[in-house]
């Protein structure tokens, strides 16, 4: 059976409980940061930060919006990173949950290749060359618990469960949310296990909110062909 996240950004208040719960469960160290003129910190995902609430101020149709996007690995159904690695001892998909798992053996891979392969710009390299990213709290999920970031979420922005249930939830929430946000859409639902819903154009939230060629290396395109589709086609399947 395959699990999926459904992340309803319209409900996110950027309390960042998910960002900390992730660090807490994984015992990840804090990064040294500085205020760069924004609440968002750290600046980006990193080897020590698997989950990051991205925050952007946008004026949309004359109205100020503060857009929150809790970014994390999409756990692709057919992960380009896994394809590129071609090494199941380094990157594999958990049979029981669908989590795309990076092991210590990622140290043996060409990190730049893997990072380039990701259409969502997720994997990050550590000092010793190991790659890291969200592991879907696979240990929790295997033991019947929700991922830390989902359990901690107060508003229902973070959801997790059987893939079919999450797709159904996404569909019903989309119908509801469209009343308030007519441009709302589901992002790349056919390709990923981390399914986002946004209220506005996804690029207003984050340049890699939807699968993007921006991070693809040209040499990797063949391997990624089946992954890369313009989001509008995918989104149209759920409306």
């Amino acid at each position: 059976m395959s699990k999926s996240f459904f992340i309803d950004t319209t409900l996110c208040t950027a309390c960042r409980g998910c960002q900390v719960a992730c660090k807490q469960w994984h015992a990840l160290p804090a990064e040294e940061t500085e205020n760069r003129g924004t609440y968002q910190n750290p600046a980006d995902l990193s080897f020590d930060t698997y989950k990051l609430v991205r925050m952007r101020e946008q004026v949309i149709d004359g109205k100020l919006r503060w857009l929150f996007f809790p970014d994390q690995c999409r756990h692709c159904l057919e992960g380009p990173c896994q394809d590129v690695a071609g090494e199941p001892s380094a990157i594999y998909t958990s049979e029981s949950t669908g989590a795309v798992i990076y092991t210590a053996n990622t140290r043996q891979l060409d990190a730049a290749e893997i990072i380039e392969a990701c259409p969502y710009n997720i994997p990050r390299k550590g000092a010793d060359g190991t790659l890291a990213k969200c592991d879907m709290c696979n240990d929790r999920v295997e033991n019947g618990l929700q991922p830390a970031c989902v359990k901690v979420c107060p508003t229902g922005a973070m959801n997790f469960g059987e893939r079919d249930d999450m797709l159904a939830l996404a569909q019903s929430r989309l119908t509801e949310v469209k009343k308030k946000f007519p441009k709302a859409m589901i992002l790349d639902p056919d390709d990923v296990r981390t399914i986002y819903m946004v209220g506005f154009e996804p690029n207003l939230y984050h340049e890699s909110a939807v699968a993007s060629a921006a991070h693809f290396g040209i040499t990797r395109q063949a391997a990624l062909r089946r992954m890369f589709r313009p989001f509008r086609n995918i989104a149209s399947q759920l409306s």
Binding site: C15, R16, Q19, V20, K23, Q24, P29, A30, E31, E32, T33, E34, N35, Y39, N41, P42
Partner: peptide, 25 residues
């Protein structure tokens, strides 16, 4: 701010929280 509490005595000592809001603004 959500990441700190009152004068921050309890939260400025916590790297996970200071990481998110490191400086007065």
């Amino acid at each position: 701010v959500v990441e700190h509490w009152q004068t921050g005595v309890m939260t400025r000592n916590q790297p996970w929280l200071l990481e998110m809001q490191p400086q007065v603004f």
